[in-house]
Nucleic acid binder design. Structure first.
Lengths: 194, 194
DNA sequence: CTGCAACCGGAGCGGGGATTCCGGTTGTGC
DNA sequence: GCACAACCGGAATCCCCGCTCCGGTTGCAG
């Protein structure tokens, strides 16, 4: 170890401009295609929509799974940011704020939202979110924003539920998840003890 | 047309005993495998677990989809029975009874529960369930079991949510959906107007 | 006990889609 | 303006899986 040249020595030869552009395009295209066709859409379609060849996709992402993981990681970043923000306020409404952020994110990434949180490309990110959820739940209970006896598990379940809402096609108005959340929050407020 | 021999004339040559036995085995095996690996498990695995060849599976079911449809149809039958039973009582608690039946069914068919209700191998069955849901919701509102302003859409959303609960792996206690349902019902009770 | 229709198993065919390969292009540093 | 490393496209390869086919069995009627 000692004296070993730090790997950071690697000349960070920046990507060529066109390579960067394609990288972006692929990400965008992948989001759109997965959104429309679910997680089993094929790479060729993603490449075509991005206006590149499949080879280019594979030069940038080791495999289809890696591509999906990257997409999820990016989405996860948003959630983490939302969690930090919710933790910042110190009244008892951070939990509700976090839940609304989750709902919004799920609605945006509807079709592949099911992968979110199940797959865990980045375990530490998932842990942070879990911790934030626990903390915010505790605060909400303390502040009486939700009834005593509401647990982290209850909140986790609610999150899964909102995710399902986003995926379910049907006549779902885009705001259905909000209404659903309102109802469930009312229920949690009414929940005393277990 | 007139005078055509009714097709019912077809000699209902009963299946041989071994064929019946295999049919059962395949159904059971398919449930187990789909339960474990989700809907994209391969036929070969199902056949192997059932102790038959793939040819036998295809002699009994036209295609993999047909097999899944049959599985869903059977599950759907249970739900319809539950719906009829819930409709039978005339207090305002039929809705709750139906919802508990759904939760139980989802918990039993966890991994492929997502197919249930999305796919509709039998449209009329789906319609009956939808109608029953609407009727029971109306009765519940009338009886004050849930707040005024609760709609069929709200109930449908709840059903999707419970389905998600069943699928989500994690440390979920098997009874999590019950607790979830209790909380949401409390919320619906508290929901007045919109 | 016999004969045969109904069954059975599982090798093999065909299509689809992920991943690789390589001859041609194109930014970039000098 | 030059040379070359980094890029690119997309044909070809490989593998997985649904489904078919057919020679060998087996329940069951007579």
């Amino acid at each position: 170890m000692a004296g070993t040249r730090v790997t950071a020595e690697r000349p960070p030869r920046a990507l060529r401009r066109d390579a960067i552009r394609n990288h972006e395009r692929i990400l965008t295209s992948a989001r759109e295609v997965f959104e429309q066709s679910g997680a089993d859409a094929c790479i060729e379609e993603i490449a075509a929509r991005a206006g590149v060849g499949v080879g280019t996709v594979y030069r940038r992402f080791a495999s289809k799974d890696a591509l999906i993981d990257e997409l999820l990681r990016l989405a996860m970043d948003d959630l983490i940011a939302a969690a930090e923000q919710a933790l910042a306020r110190d009244d008892g409404h951070g939990l509700e704020q976090l839940l609304r952020a989750f709902g919004k994110s799920f609605a945006e990434h509807a079709r592949y939202a099911n992968l979110l949180l199940d797959r865990q490309p980045d375990a530490s990110a998932a842990r942070r979110i879990r911790e934030a959820t626990a903390e915010l739940t505790a605060r909400a209970v303390a502040a009486g924003t939700v009834g005593a006896g509401v647990t982290r598990g209850d909140v986790t379940a609610l999150i899964s539920a909102m995710r399902a809402m986003a995926q379910t096609p049907g006549e779902a108005a885009p705001e259905r998840w909000q209404r659903f959340l309102d109802i469930h929050l009312a229920g949690m407020r009414a929940t005393r003890g277990r």
